[in-house]
């Protein structure tokens, strides 16, 4: 992914979104069919359920040079698999606290519930996260780790 906007040379954050197939992915589809415009720096990775989202994916995304990560799925009570998102929520509670404790910038990891009907919320979410991460700048700390420290 190109890091800098060629036209302006300004920093454009790289974002990845891990989304569930039944709510957020469909919500993002709805944003499309509604022709809502939002920032183009997010790449969506589709998973069946937030329950499938391994915390390792978030770490690997940062290691791969992402400046921000969105994790999103069905609202509580709406999970296609009835409770996958409840399991995910527990995992996120612990994982986020661990990231924070380890000094990782949790402002770069965004969790959100976006339903299949919330195309506008999805567009808003991407715009907001994109804006916030743009403010934070490139995630140099994490990106600097790769290959560093090999004796």
């Amino acid at each position: 992914m190109e890091n800098d906007n060629k036209a302006t040379g300004a920093f454009e954050p790289k974002l990845v979104a891990f989304v569930c197939n039944w709510c957020t992915y469909v919500g993002a589809d709805l944003a499309g069919t509604s022709r809502l415009k939002y920032a183009s720096n997010v790449r969506v990775i589709r998973l069946p359920c937030t329950g499938r989202i391994d915390f390792m994916l978030i770490l690997k995304a940062f290691a791969q040079g992402m400046d921000g990560v969105i994790v999103s799925g069905c609202h509580p009570g709406d999970c296609h698999y009835t409770v996958g998102n409840y399991h995910a929520r527990r995992r996120w509670i612990l994982f986020r606290s661990l990231l924070d404790f380890a000094g990782i910038d949790v402002r770069r990891v965004h969790f959100a519930w976006v339903s299949a009907a919330e195309g506008a919320k999805w567009a808003d979410l991407v715009n907001k996260v994109s804006g916030e991460v743009r403010e934070l700048g490139p995630y140099k700390e994490y990106q600097g780790l790769a290959g560093k420290g090999i004796a």
């Binding site: 770490l59 380890a102 600097g144 790769a146 004796a151």
Partner: peptide, 15 residues
């Protein structure tokens, strides 16, 4: 044992 892998190992172990 470089910095990225070390961080990942310790976080995954804790999780």
């Amino acid at each position: 044992p470089h910095d990225e892998g070390n961080l990942e190992w310790h976080l995954v172990r804790a999780m």
